[in-house]
Amino acid sequence: MICCKECLDLLYDYIEGSLDQETTDSLEEHFQECPPCISFMKTYKSTTTICRDTLNQVDVPDAVREALLKVLKENKEHPGEN
């Protein structure tokens, strides 16, 4: 049976679904015997989701959008001055 350390090394490919069947089976066998590794896997996956959801909230503020439009317009009219 694989140990926790090997389980960690396989986690990335397991989540991507890119492990072969045999390795997937031995990893899942390990999960059945090892609740801490299941918790680890779930929180590893959650980390990506919550970071992505938080960081994707960045929007261009209206003031920035307007300032950019102005600069781009000036640049088109008089290229090379900015």
Partner: peptide, 13 residues
């Protein structure tokens, strides 16, 4: 040494 978890892992997901 045997490659098993040493820390307590909580599932907060």
């Amino acid at each position: 040494g045997a490659g098993f978890q040493q820390e307590k892992i909580q599932d907060w997901s």
